[in-house]
Design a binder for these strands. Structure first.
Ligand code: SF4
Ligand code: SF4
Lengths: 134, 134
DNA sequence: GGTAACAGGACTTGACAAGTCTTTTGCTGC
DNA sequence: GCAGCAAAAGACTTGTCAAGTCCTGTTACC
């Protein structure tokens, strides 16, 4: 259980590659895809999401490509994962009250909340700088 | 992401109900299903798995039903979850080396290991006694 | 032997993961 | 302003798996 999808894994690979490049060096999608071994068309979708949430910047046309939107030490793994996978929800009742009609008196409910907090804590403390290879 | 399936949630509901009953009181599947609001045929599958992994005992025929295989304080939530959902794997590379060809030099790999350890730690520290309602 | 209960297997339905393909939009540079 | 480059967007495919249902078998009690 609790499996990250390929999309999530690919997303991390791709953005870590960006973080490993010299600052302000624009990378082509084709270049990233080849480097991290992900189908280019699939990676395109992922980077579109990144672009929409604002953690990477994109440029079209000749000389275009992708660039991190901020310094690697300010982008956390949590941001990256939640950008493509959505919020971390060990169980659906964590999302909001009322999702499960038993939540008012459920003794298990707090456990999932705790799991969510812990996982978020781990991911939030890791930045792209920690992951980049130089 | 990281969502527990319904099966997992139902499994917990069911076994917590068992843990909330007086010791040695055999419960019928129909009774459990009604109490925790789960389709009986689906819950049957779940309890078959419990029975096979040995965390509940089952009895057939007249007067049959289900019983916890041990005292509630000795059965952890981790055992329950892994019995029906399989091992906790935040990413497939955690399972064993070689699942991902990039794992030798992957800087992200240890993160998932850490997540797995933390989650397992939380679940292993909660027993059915903690969850039972009396 | 009949009935009460769990065990096991086959099957269904829908959603969603993991892509692919095609078209459109925007940019740069001659 | 046109050519060509590169990302954006959307429609489509394929396979797997979650979430059940249904039917038949097996075991135990009386
Ligand atoms: S843990 Fe409790 S509140 Fe959450 S979905 Fe399960 S039964 Fe509902
Ligand atoms: S985290 Fe690294 S080793 Fe694990 S699956 Fe992703 S790329 Fe492979």
């Amino acid at each position: 259980m609790m499996e990250l999808t390929r999309k999530g894994d690919y997303a991390i690979r791709g953005i870590v590659y960006l973080a490993s490049q010299p600052p302000n060096k624009i990378s082509l999608l084709s270049e990233i895809a080849a480097a991290v071994d992900v189908p280019q068309t699939f990676l395109a979708k992922i980077f579109q999401q990144f672009s929409k949430t604002g953690i990477v910047k994109s440029f079209r046309g000749t000389g275009g490509g992708f660039l991190l939107a901020g310094p690697p030490e300010e982008i956390t793994l949590l941001q990256v994962v939640e950008a493509v996978e959505g919020p971390i929800l060990p169980n659906r009742c964590v999302l909001k009250a009322g999702e499960c009609e038993r939540d008012v008196s459920c003794t298990v409910h707090p456990v999932w909340h705790q799991v969510q907090q812990k996982v978020r804590g781990i991911l939030a403390n890791i930045t792209l700088k920690d992951l980049a290879t130089n």
